[in-house]
Amino acid sequence: MKRSRRSFLQLAGVSALGLGLKPAAGLFAASGGHGRAPGEKVLKSEKALKAKQWAMVIDTRKFESAEDLEPLIEVCHKIHNVPSMKDKRHEIKWIWEEEFEHAFPTQELRFLPERIAQLPFLTLCNHCEHPPCVRACPTKATFKREDGIVLMDFHRCIGCRFCMAACPYGSRSFNFRDPRPFIEEINPDYPTRMKGVVEKCNFCAERLAVGRMPACVEASNGAITFGDLEDPESEVRALLRENYTIRRKQALGTGPAIYYIV
């Protein structure tokens, strides 16, 4: 055998690479597959609600205390299988309450009217017009949908948590451990999450798809209005015309789609 060890190893290495390349290439090809046979279609329901940019107006005057907010939070967390973690570090929340000074830390805080100082504010994902989290995500696991909803693809999230660093509203939660044991009652109509992925409010995309309003809107007795920001005839636009509203950290240019009447 007249061959040096070096050339022998090089040959072996190249062969191994060649053998490995084939399945790897197959893997890449398989992942793209939307594959539909002729005649097959994927459709939206006729009942689905449509918009150019979904937005929410929260009339905080209609809430008096934390008790008024609890049912909204509960219904959201219940239908979306949001676990209640015992350890506060691992907390997961889609919609929650914050005091004014935390919801609006850059706003005037010293001389607040008593009502506002004591009123808890609802906070959730702002479904920004220019979402920094979408900019940061390295896999497009979080993306902005045509109707303005900033959505999570839990199948694709690698759990790098860049989106959480990017979000200026603390709207995102990470599954530091398997959430299932911490869901009191599993809603069979919605999946749970697995450990290692980020999650947040989805503006009830699964309800809009079948023609229903978001759960918190439904539970709010008219305190929350939901509609298309780009449609001048929409209810949210009417409210914005008639009332002075504030948004969280507007100066950052993210364009939050949650408006607060205070």
């Binding site: 097959e40 459709l43 939206k44 329901s45 959505l151 839990f154 199948h155």
Partner: peptide, 12 residues
């Protein structure tokens, strides 16, 4: 998840 299309129509 990504295209907001939830209905599958078979060839028939």
């Amino acid at each position: 998840v990504r295209n907001a299309r939830r209905i599958w129509e078979t060839a028939d």
